[in-house]
Amino acid sequence: MSDDKTPFISCKNLSRVFVKKLDFAGKIARTLGSKIREEKVQAVDSVDLDVMPGEVLGLVGESGCGKSTLGRMLCGILPSSNGDIFYKGNNVKKMSTKEALHYAINVQMIFQDPYASLNPRKRVNQIIGEAPLYHGLTTKKDLDSYLEDVMLRCGLDPTYKNRYPHQFSGGQRQRIGIARAMAVQPECLVCDESVAALDVSIQAQILNLFMDLRKELNLTCLFISHDLGVVEHISDRIAVMYLGRIVEIASVEKLFSEPFHPYTQALLNEVPRLDKRDVDFAPLKGEIPSPLDPPEGCHFHPRCAHAMDICRKVIPEIKETAPGHKTRCHLADV
């Protein structure tokens, strides 16, 4: 039952809480009656999101707001604390082993941190070639040409295939990560800041590559980035996240021309552009809230110029302000 109307991946009410365990001293203090508690971070808070087949959905938001955590849960590599994930309409908790394997291969994640995600003791040809060989996408005999193909596609010189990750520059390592994901021919990519370490000329190649692959293979993509210029360029829709919640989601045109949420507006103001010269960088107003102790009501109220009484108490619902344009702000109540 997968058609164009069924989201490729979606989630309902998806949440993730991280608990920082008490250390030994903390435990003793607690048994002695101190009010000390385990610290909890609500990294992702009741997120509903649909990624439609063939679309590129951009996910932007402040550092630490939970983008990676959400992306990792959608890929099935991090368990959720609450809520459901659907792969082509099927709840992943109820899938057969075969379906689960399909989901695991078909949805690939490209990581933010190419240093941590590449095994330093493996050569590049092993890193890229292991999975396609294991899944029978190529044979031992054809592996070399298969690898060469994937590496060239991702802008890597195939003559480097016997090197180890540390022998590459940051940007080259990022491309190894992309090549590793592309090597199993997935239908869906979750890209976590995957062009962050690339300079613009290679970024242009990779973004062009994404756009080509997407057209050629009808690739579905969740694109996590802080770079609004990049997200603007390649996405169909953009979701804006703030302290664990999605606060606005709209088509790119609408989001850039008529941002509704005050946080989205602030974000758009800060985008560095080539024609903005000799900027007087102004420190942001309002304290950045702690995810350990998020403000009540609307998480953004301590920094919001439009904050009203209700904002300090009541969590705004997500509302549709125009067809396909949803926001989580009390200004949309009226």
Partner: peptide, 20 residues
């Protein structure tokens, strides 16, 4: 060395502001 490439623009703006 590219310390803000992984940061969102509001935090990047804040760090650039401090540095400046």
């Amino acid at each position: 060395d590219e310390p803000t490439t992984a940061l969102d623009v509001t935090i990047q703006g804040q760090i650039l502001s401090e540095m400046q």
